[in-house]
Amino acid sequence: MTAWAQSLIRISNYEVETLQKRLAEITARRASTEMRLAVLDAEVEIERERARADADAAMLLQSYLHGWKLRKGAAEADLTVLDHEEEGARDALTSAFEELKKFEHVAELTRLNAVIAAGKRETAAFDELGLRRRAG
């Protein structure tokens, strides 16, 4: 394989690895945000139960619910942003992987063409040697 092909493949591999790390980071942030939403849902149920049993808690429930809705809305907005970010990262990773495969294909074709050319040169050399022996 030629040096230029090795360099292109090495650069493409690096890009694929970088994008894989980015996608993993986005996935981790997504899982964290989903966990935050689950915790918020559990907390609101606990507060509702407390309000049913305690009159003081019942008076404060509306204020709590207002704050809870704001926090839940922010978490859902974060999740929407992460969905778009994840989609973009997946598209970029797919493109980078396709580019890597193209470079590997071109490198392999270049290598095969070099082998074929060497075979032709060798055949031509043997043909010339055979002609010389016949003539000589």
Rank of each mutant, 00 (worst) to 15 (best):
E99Q: 15
R50C: 03
E25P: 00
E15Y: 10
S95I: 01
E104W: 11
R22I: 04
S32T: 14
L109T: 03
A58Y: 02
S12H: 05
E25V: 07
N13H: 06
A114Y: 06
T123A: 13
T27S: 10
A38L: 09
A92Q: 07
I9K: 01
E43F: 06
A125K: 09
D54H: 11
V81I: 09
I9P: 00
M35D: 12
A31G: 08
L109Y: 07
S95M: 03
Y14T: 12
R111F: 15
L19Q: 11
G119W: 15
T123C: 02
A24H: 06
I26D: 01
V44P: 01
L37K: 08
S63H: 08
L79R: 07
A51E: 06
M35V: 06
R50K: 13
A57H: 09
L40P: 02
G67P: 01
L65Q: 06
A74F: 12
R36M: 06
L19M: 09
W4I: 14
A89L: 04
T18K: 10
L40M: 08
L40N: 05
Y14W: 12
N113M: 12
H105L: 11
W4D: 08
A118Y: 10
E25Y: 14
F103H: 14
S32P: 00
E86V: 01
T27F: 02
A3I: 14
H84V: 12
A124D: 14
A118Q: 13
L19V: 01
E49I: 10
A124S: 11
E87V: 12
S32Y: 05
A75Y: 03
R30G: 01
E49F: 06
E85L: 15
E76T: 14
A118E: 15
E86G: 14
G67F: 06
L79T: 03
F97P: 00
V16I: 03
A125F: 15
T2Q: 09
L60F: 07
D56C: 01
E15Q: 13
R90E: 07
S63I: 08
V106L: 09
V106T: 10
I9N: 01
E98G: 09
A57G: 04
Q6C: 05
E122Y: 14
A53D: 07
S12Y: 01
E43I: 12
R121L: 09
R90D: 02
R22F: 08
E15L: 09
T2L: 10
K21F: 08
A3Y: 10
E45K: 15
R52D: 04
T18M: 04
D83Q: 14
D54K: 08
R132E: 11
